[in-house]
Amino acid sequence: MSGAVPFAELLAAALIVLGAGFALVGSWGLVRLPSLMERLHAPTKATTLGLGAMLAGSVVWFQLVKGEWTTHELLVPVFLFVTAPIAANMIAKVHLHALRSGDASAPAGPAGAPPPPPGRADWATHEAPHQGTPCDFEGDERR
């Protein structure tokens, strides 16, 4: 049976199944993990990787159907790989900000709230430059 199926179709099907499996694992982790700092791991890594696999599968499939290599699908995973860490960083900042402002609807999770950084500095979620702390760069005071 597999001798009759072209190798490219087999590869495209395997990549689509792999991508859907990774997306499922990412969303399952989003439901299952205990607090936001753990939950951030599943969708930002597994789901993004799964989407990359699905788009690679579509490149293989359109090569099989139309006989030409298309690369514009690869723009989507490139863009997602660039933006996923930034979005995760912003969401983690929102979580830290909610923890620090005592929002009761945001539990800290099993690991607890992260300790403040050493020195007199604080996490840069609320205030921008802190005068007289290690984060006080030259020029802040003139502002």
Partner: peptide, 24 residues
């Protein structure tokens, strides 16, 4: 939920999964 950050994360993941549906 329970927090607002969880909802933002869920919405972000939904967008990525919908992109997957469009690709399929």
């Amino acid at each position: 939920g329970p927090g607002t950050a969880d909802r933002i994360l869920a919405l972000d993941t939904m967008v990525i999964n919908v992109i997957g549906v469009i690709v399929l």
